[in-house]
Simulated assay, not measured.
Amino acid sequence: MKKKTQVIDQLALPLLIIFSFLLFACHNGIDQQHAIGSAATAEAIALNEPEPIQTIPLERRLIKEGTISFETNDLSETAKLIGQAIKKYNAYIASETENNYSESLSRTIVVRVNAKQFDAFIGDVAKGVNHFETKNIQVKDVTEEFVDIQARLKTKKELEQRYRTLLQRAAKVTEILEIEKQLAEVRAEIESVEGRLRYLANQSTYSTLSITYYKAVPKQIAFGQKFKQGLSNGWQNFVWFTVGLINIWPFLLLMVIAMFFARRWWRKRKTRQRMDASTN
């Protein structure tokens, strides 16, 4: 009996080790299955999730317009400075006017310059200017309108293409005429939209700046200019009066002839009256 007990004790330790090993292996397998299941679930969730929408950055369309006016001591020097700035920034003159007032001489130049160089151009033009009589800069964002017009244009062109496809398949004259009518209307709308799109593109690519600079005229010089202007106006009025008389010379000639015969008749009448009075 004692020997049997010893045998059982000797077998108990190996059996306990084997049982512990099996228990550990089962627990580890369950954990691996749970991990695999979790990974598969996460992958499935990731596949079912919608892909993030990639937003394409829009190019902002800004229309810049400005007006500046200032006084200068030398009109020629200021004109030279503005001309150098125009050449430097590859701008161009849209319009140019010159006014000769009694108290000042002024010039106004409207310049179109690349929108990205608008601020730098103003800085070069305003060199040496201590005070602006007027400085007004306006910026209008037309990005939304520009994108909307592009979308409308794309839709109109797709509609035009569908009409052209239907026109190729049309067999009846009435169908052809109706499709051509619709096609002409769509083409007119496309040209109108394209015109607006070109205008916005041009206005946002090139900014507009109106520059007015003037030089004050002393009062003595102003009086001399008024006197000179009065002489000039009097001469011009005399010339126009002479031209007017030349234009109506036939009527003047008729009036002279009529007056000549009327005076002659009047003299004859007076002579007859005198003769009759002396006879009586």
Score class of each variant (00 low, 15 high):
residue 1 M to V: 09
residue 4 K to R: 08
residue 5 T to A: 13
residue 6 Q to C: 05
residue 7 V to Y: 05
residue 13 L to R: 15
residue 14 P to G: 12
residue 15 L to N: 08
residue 21 F to V: 08
residue 22 L to H: 06
residue 25 A to D: 09
residue 26 C to K: 12
residue 31 D to W: 14
residue 32 Q to F: 03
residue 32 Q to R: 07
residue 32 Q to A: 14
residue 40 A to F: 15
residue 42 A to N: 08
residue 47 L to K: 14
residue 48 N to K: 14
residue 50 P to H: 14
residue 55 T to Y: 04
residue 56 I to F: 12
residue 68 I to E: 01
residue 68 I to T: 04
residue 70 F to P: 00
residue 72 T to C: 09
residue 78 T to W: 00
residue 79 A to W: 00
residue 81 L to Y: 01
residue 81 L to P: 00
residue 86 I to N: 01
residue 86 I to W: 00
residue 89 Y to V: 01
residue 91 A to W: 01
residue 92 Y to R: 06
residue 93 I to D: 03
residue 93 I to G: 02
residue 94 A to R: 07
residue 95 S to Q: 02
residue 99 N to V: 10
residue 102 S to W: 11
residue 103 E to Y: 10
residue 109 I to T: 01
residue 110 V to I: 11
residue 116 K to E: 10
residue 116 K to R: 14
residue 119 D to L: 05
residue 120 A to Q: 09
residue 124 D to C: 07
residue 125 V to L: 04
residue 126 A to D: 04
residue 131 H to F: 15
residue 131 H to Y: 15
residue 132 F to Y: 11
residue 134 T to K: 13
residue 137 I to D: 01
residue 137 I to Q: 00
residue 141 D to W: 06
residue 146 F to E: 02
residue 147 V to P: 02
residue 149 I to C: 04
residue 152 R to K: 15
residue 154 K to F: 13
residue 156 K to E: 10
residue 157 K to D: 01
residue 160 E to Y: 13
residue 161 Q to P: 02
residue 161 Q to W: 03
residue 164 R to G: 06
residue 167 L to T: 02
residue 170 A to Y: 00
residue 170 A to I: 07
residue 174 T to D: 15
residue 176 I to F: 03
residue 178 E to W: 02
residue 179 I to C: 08
residue 183 L to M: 07
residue 187 R to Q: 11
residue 188 A to V: 08
residue 194 E to W: 03
residue 198 R to C: 03
residue 198 R to D: 09
residue 201 A to N: 04
residue 203 Q to N: 10
residue 204 S to W: 01
residue 207 S to E: 07
residue 208 T to A: 02
residue 215 K to R: 15
residue 223 F to G: 08
residue 231 L to G: 06
residue 235 W to S: 06
residue 235 W to F: 11
residue 236 Q to H: 07
residue 237 N to C: 05
residue 238 F to V: 12
residue 238 F to S: 11
residue 241 F to R: 13
residue 244 G to M: 07
residue 244 G to I: 03
residue 246 I to K: 07
residue 246 I to S: 12
residue 247 N to A: 15
residue 247 N to S: 14
residue 249 W to R: 10
residue 251 F to M: 14
residue 252 L to Y: 09
residue 255 M to H: 11
residue 257 I to T: 05
residue 257 I to G: 01
residue 263 R to F: 14
residue 269 R to F: 14
residue 279 T to N: 06
residue 279 T to Q: 08
